[in-house]
């Protein structure tokens, strides 16, 4: 019953996803004919070698990252909204993003403060993700330790927000004592970026992402029982505490790796679950989870394509685009539908 009902939506979304994936690859500062793009991916004859390099080493990785980041953040948003029974929750409520920001801020801004502590002032490809992950894990473990002492999920939410404020304050202090060039460098990281990742980085990204994704399959059942509230979940034989920990762990792994590699990308995690619930008018996680993943990938591919501004030389910060185009859409959807759900 439930499968046939949603097949059409899933089919349309999947086709859209494939189309947008290739459309995204065809956009960029260098205009490349579609045929050349197709050939460079599937190994045909290419008239210019530079085209192949651009496609294989820049555009395809970026499109793949967009799919991973978009779907990953959206899944995290869905998990958090169901866990906290709060439609405003998102992947960043647990202080993960602020933790990552703190790590990066310490690396970039703190280097002038602590001088020799960091060996060089130059920030390599790997040190940023490392610092971000380290910060995320640090703040998150603080949040989870605090969360273990409280029973109420709402308190965990507030504790997460408080840690967010704390780290933001520390970053402000760091910024105050930093030089303009370093502040600029930090600011660029906080704009978010899907590009500039090598294939080896993508492999690491994809492996961690897959671990998180497999984990979510195992929490579909507890998530559905959480729709009735934790008391009912418990009476249905669900180990509420363990499920909550697994959900928090999955979210931190996914959000942590995403933030580490592409910066704090706003809006997607909060908004996509709402879009999915409206399109599918369901709260069943067996339907929502794949829906949210596909829509999340779609939305970020669209945002990235807009950020490229076809045929223009500039690339706008992805973080600005997600909010600039996404927020009005969600407002419009909510005003039209009037009712929001968890």
């Amino acid at each position: 019953m439930e499968k046939t009902k949603y097949t059409k939506q899933f089919l349309i979304l999947s086709v859209l996803l494939i189309i947008l994936f290739f459309l995204n690859i065809s956009f960029g500062s260098v205009s490349i004919p579609f045929k050349a793009i197709f050939n460079s991916i599937f190994g045909g004859n290419i008239t210019k070698e530079s085209w192949e390099t651009i496609v294989i080493h820049f555009r395809v990785p970026k499109a793949i990252i967009a799919v991973l980041v978009g779907s990953g953040l959206s899944i995290c948003g869905l998990l958090m909204q169901t866990l906290f029974k709060n439609p405003l929750a998102g992947p960043f409520v647990l202080g993960i993003s602020s933790g990552a920001s703190l790590g990066v801020a310490l690396l970039i801004l703190g280097s002038s403060l602590f001088g020799g502590f960091f060996l060089t002032n130059t920030v390599s490809n790997w040190s940023l993700p490392m610092a971000a992950s380290f910060g995320a894990i640090l703040v998150l473990s603080a949040v989870i330790t605090a969360a273990n002492k409280v029973r109420n999920t709402m308190s965990i939410l507030i504790i997460g927000l408080m840690f967010g404020s704390l780290t933001a304050a520390v970053i402000s202090v760091l910024t105050y004592f930093s030089e303009a060039t370093q502040i600029q460098q930090y600011l660029f990281w906080s704009f978010g970026s899907l590009g500039n990742l090598s294939w080896s980085e993508i492999t690491v990204f994809a492996i961690i992402y897959s671990i998180g994704l497999i984990g979510t399959l195992f929490v579909i059942k507890p998530l559905n029982s959480f729709l009735l509230g934790e008391d009912y979940a418990k009476s249905l034989g669900i180990n509420v505490k363990r499920s909550r920990h697994i959900i928090l762990l999955i979210t931190s792994i996914l959000t942590g790796v995403i933030t580490a590699f592409s910066g704090p990308i706003a809006f997607i995690g909060l908004a996509v679950p709402h879009i999915a619930r409206m399109l599918f008018s369901s709260s069943n996680h067996k339907i929502l989870l794949p829906a949210v993943a596909i829509i999340g990938a779609l939305v970020l591919l669209i945002c990235d394509s807009i950020a490229q501004l076809p045929t223009s030389e500039f690339t706008l910060p992805i973080n600005a685009i997600t909010s600039l185009f996404g927020a009005p859409i969600v407002i419009w959807l909510l005003v039209r539908k009037k009712k929001i759900f968890v």
Binding site: L228, G229, D231, Y232, S235, L236, I238, I340, F341
Partner: peptide, 30 residues
């Protein structure tokens, strides 16, 4: 159990809600 507290808002259908009662018996993917 049947409790008094209001259910959190969601779009569950009546059938899905009743089917959740089978969770103790269903497999890992429900």
């Amino acid at each position: 159990l049947v409790l008094t507290a209001r259910l959190p808002e969601s779009q569950l259908t009546v059938y899905e809600l009743i089917a959740l009662g089978r969770q103790p018996y269903t497999n890992w993917i429900d």
